[in-house]
Design a protein around this nucleic acid. Sequence first.
DNA 1: CGTACTATTGATAGATATCAACGCTGGTGG
DNA 2: CCACCAGCGTTGATATCTATCAATAGTACG
Lengths: 245, 245
Amino acid sequence: MTNAFIRKLEAHGPFSAADRALLEQISRKWREVSAGHDLIRMGDAPDEVRLILDGFACRAKYLKNGKRQIVDYLIPGDFCDLHVIILKRMDHDITALSRCVVVDIPRARISEMLERPALAKALWWATLVNEATLREWLVNIGQRSAPQRLAHLFCELYIRLRAVGLVSESSFALPVTQKDLADTAGLSEVHVNRSLQILRQKRLITLKSRELVVLDAPGLIAFCGFDPNYLHIGEDTAVNDQTLM
Amino acid sequence: MTNAFIRKLEAHGPFSAADRALLEQISRKWREVSAGHDLIRMGDAPDEVRLILDGFACRAKYLKNGKRQIVDYLIPGDFCDLHVIILKRMDHDITALSRCVVVDIPRARISEMLERPALAKALWWATLVNEATLREWLVNIGQRSAPQRLAHLFCELYIRLRAVGLVSESSFALPVTQKDLADTAGLSEVHVNRSLQILRQKRLITLKSRELVVLDAPGLIAFCGFDPNYLHIGEDTAVNDQTLM
DNA sequence: CGTACTATTGATAGATATCAACGCTGGTGG
DNA sequence: CCACCAGCGTTGATATCTATCAATAGTACG
């Protein structure tokens, strides 16, 4: 079985049999975390790197006044905390949004991965795409209107989830509350509600019972000016809106 | 001569003589870029990785409607585009804010660096701190008020610039316009002007002629709730506001 | 000593937050 | 199986923040 993790990493260069064997061994022993529970807490200095095999989680930072900013959504195949290999402590929390299946990879295994060029490159790739995504989020919050911010987030999740096979019929599970979206987009809960109504009125999306349906992909893309380049999926492949969504 | 680059990288583990020799060789051949000129443009796929030895630059993404979001400030010792080793193309621009001294490191040299554990680790460190900084910027724009956003930015620059010896007497060169600050903080130019007035009224800072003076460091820190942890400078060292600024 | 960029100011419009209430829904225990 | 409860979504009214527009004042630089 090739899981989301291996599929995602291998997207940018084939692995040798030995590489794959190592990855498969890594993802053999997993555990479950139920929705709402923390995978890692700020200040933790874990000895393993966590990896999500199934489920949805978010990375968030809290202010002293209780405000929260979600800075990433973690989907199957994403590493939670590659940082702790180098940076001793977590500077933020990771919380499960749905039931998650997680593997804990010991540092030693990561070191082994870093010694294999193809795997090391894959880890660099994952890290750098993360960084590029953070930059785009900054653009999103800094420069776009409330409804556009949400639209952009949905476009991104669509592409990322599709890359791991979690989109069907233009729709996908999105186990978040409007408050979560608010804390992602730097908005209030009420304003998220009203912004979603705008997106619905425009017949761009539907979001009900934690299920997001993209009704009009080109429209959604145009509405927020989404350009998937920053995700560096299918590098050097000619892409356009039609092929993408 | 140990330049900012080497000093910064070495902050997290000593290098061997060979490591240092490689670094010194790398930073030997430099060139100048004058203020306002681009170091790299979106879409470029350069064969070298650029590194700033002196000067100030910014990393920015543009929207189709002309809006701009600055997503990072680059100071001496910072890599411009480690990404292009792995991700083929730049997905943003880098522009000099002041006259810059830059070195172009051929890919091959970067590969040599990655083969040396201490140097590879240093590169990982730089990348992961970048990522952590982006997360904190997201918190900044998403959750703080306009004056707080600026205060937080100033705190960060203070710490980062001090780490490379560019702060003296609680002040440092900050070659940016109010429009630049606006595009950094997701605000309008006018509102930045008024927010700066608030910071001045509170006797926290002074900003004139591209020189920022921190008048009241503890006050500035308290005002925006700055916590330097995310910069991962002096890991595992007990730090507090007093020792920091 | 213009000229162009940058900073500042005032007035107004627009976007978003906050506050408060109510309705819906899914789960739980009796 | 129903009643209740808690969390979530929705709505309206209002306050606050921030953008926009337009004009003026500095400032740096050729």
